[in-house]
C-alpha cells in the first residue's frame, strides 16, 4: 500500500509557525548539584520541578528521501496527563552570527490513543527513550536538565538503563518565527552557566 501523501513541511501561516531556539550541553553526574544550585539562583522563583517522560519517535516513510518524524511523549510521573505530540523541523545551525540552533516546531497535546492512531496512519516506531530530570524556567526560556535512559523492554519504563554518566542540558525558547533577538537572550543566559556547562548549538547531522 502506498503511504498517504504527507508533506515534510510543517503547516505555515497562522499561529502554528513557531520556531524553537535551542542550545545543548551536558553535565557530569558529579556536577549536577552545583548546576541545579546555580539554576535555582538564576531562574524564576518557583518550586523545583522534576519530570520523567517516555518519548517514542515514529517514522513515516513516504516518497521523499527523508522520513517524516513525529515524537510522542508521555509523562511517567503524572498519570492521567495528556500525551505530547511534537514535530521538529530540520535544525538550521546558520552561520556564526546566529547564536542558537533554530528549528521549526509544532506542539500538540493529545489523548493516550496517540500510539495506536499513529500506527494506523502508517507510522512505525523507530526508537524510544526515557528522560528523567529537572525543569527550570526563566521568562520565556526553558531549561531542562535530564538523564537519558535506554529502554530495554519495548514500551515500558521498567529496567531502563542510563545511557551515560552525564545529564543532557537543553536551553530552549519556542517563539514565533523571525524573533532572532531571542537567540541573543538565550546566548547570554548560556554564558552565565559557564564554565559549569558549555551550551552550544550542536547540529545533529554532524553526529550521524
Amino acid at each position: 500500500m502506498e503511504a498517504p501523501p504527507v508533506t515534510t513541511m510543517p503547516v505555515t501561516g497562522g499561529t502554528i509557525n513557531m520556531m524553537e531556539y535551542l542550545l545543548q550541553g551536558s553535565i557530569l553526574d558529579q556536577g549536577l548539584d552545583s548546576l541545579l544550585h546555580r539554576l535555582r539562583g538564576l531562574c524564576d522563583n518557583m518550586e523545583p520541578e522534576t519530570f520523567a517522560d517516555h518519548e517514542s519517535v515514529y517514522l513515516l516513510k513516504g516518497q521523499q528521501a527523508s522520513p517524516f518524524v513525529l515524537r510522542a511523549r508521555r509523562p511517567l510521573d503524572r498519570p492521567g496527563s495528556p500525551w505530547h505530540l511534537r514535530y521538529l523541523g530540520q535544525p538550521e545551525a546558520g552561520d556564526r552570527s546566529r547564536h542558537t540552533l533554530v528549528r521549526n516546531c509544532v506542539d500538540i497535546a493529545t489523548s493516550e490513543v496517540l500510539p495506536e492512531f499513529l500506527q494506523e496512519m502508517g507510522f512505525r516506531m523507530d526508537h524510544e527513550f526515557i528522560a528523567k530530570g529537572h525543569l527550570f524556567r526563566k521568562g520565556v526560556m526553558k531549561i531542562a536538565v535530564f538523564k537519558v535512559f535506554r529502554v530495554l523492554v519495548a514500551g515500558t519504563a521498567e529496567g531502563a538503563e542510563p545511557l551515560s554518566l552525564s545529564y543532557l542540558v537543553e536551553l530552549s525558547v519556542v517563539a514565533p518565527a523571525g524573533q532572532d533577538s531571542i537567540a541573543d537572550e538565550v546566548r547570554s543566559f548560556a554564558e552565565q552557566l559557564k564554565p559549569l556547562v558549555q551550551l552550544e548549538k550542536i547540529d545533529p547531522k554532524r553526529l550521524m
Partner: peptide, 8 residues
C-alpha cells in the same frame, strides 16, 4: 557525552 546524548 554531550554529543552522545544529543545524537541519542
Amino acid at each position: 557525552d554531550t554529543n552522545a546524548l544529543v545524537a541519542a
